[in-house]
Amino acid sequence: MQLFPCPFCGPREESEFHYGGEAGNLRPDGGDVTAERWAGYLHMRDNPKGPGREIWVHLTCGEFFAMSRDSVNHKVSGSSTLGKSEHGA
């Protein structure tokens, strides 16, 4: 059971959180987005082995935030509130 730091509530157990996707997967707007670009946004993930930046939501407070986490050793190096347009899903 991992402990995740919600930037609003502090450390809480992982069961209170939901994964929201990789950070930095920005949504391309508009009708002229190429099929490749759109497919990349929908489907292509880096899935890094090791450190990565992810979007999570703390279900109990409802806030989305970014968390830096290592997918190998599960160490969490920090979390922060979202800036504009860091949509992950």
Binding site: R27, V57, F64, E86, A89
Partner: peptide, 13 residues
Amino acid sequence: HARLEEWRQDRFG
């Protein structure tokens, strides 16, 4: 609800 929150926080402020 979760979906509305997500777009609200990300896109609308």
